[in-house]
């Protein structure tokens, strides 16, 4: 922590060091939204078709055609792309939180954060490209 000039009275000092608020706040917002998005995602892929598989109407829970049919609906395109973006933000922001409390990474916090952003954006592009295989 940077040593602070304690000579001047607090009232006259300009402290402009709010830095951790937005990552903290957005972690909560993304986490809250993910409860619903992940809930729908797991339900659709693992449980909604379970009866059909058990009764033998359907070979497997997840196959290319099944995903393609689901992603023909605009709502699921929206859900899957939001899910991809939010889960990457929430996961990598969480990793940043852990790394900030680990000396070697915390000493290079700016570089570490930039690296995580790069990883996140890159993975989003890759994941979106993969998803488009079902849509286009």
């Amino acid at each position: 922590m940077k040593p602070r000039d304690m000579s001047a009275p607090l009232m006259s000092r300009q402290e402009k060091i709010i830095t951790g608020f937005w990552p903290w706040f957005l972690q909560r917002v993304s986490g809250f939204l993910l409860i619903f998005l992940v809930g729908v995602h797991i339900w659709m892929t693992h449980f909604s078709g379970l009866g059909d598989v058990v009764r033998g109407h359907q070979e497997e829970l997840v196959l290319f055609e099944i995903v393609k049919q689901r992603l023909a609906q605009g709502l699921f395109i929206f859900i899957d792309f939001s899910l991809l973006a939010l889960v990457l933000y929430h996961g990598l922001n969480g990793m940043r939180n852990i790394l900030l409390e680990w000396g070697p990474a915390a000493r290079h916090a700016a570089g570490m954060t930039a690296g995580l952003w790069l990883l996140g954006v890159g993975t989003f592009i890759y994941g979106a490209w993969a998803l488009l295989a079902f849509i286009l």
Binding site: V67, L84, V87, G91, G94, M95, T123, Y126, W129, A130
Partner: peptide, 18 residues
């Protein structure tokens, strides 16, 4: 949290076989 981040990357890799 860490386990799920690891799974997330595996999951994206699997889906990308499409």
């Amino acid at each position: 949290g860490v386990a799920l981040v690891g799974y997330l990357f595996l999951h994206i890799a699997v889906i990308s076989t499409a």
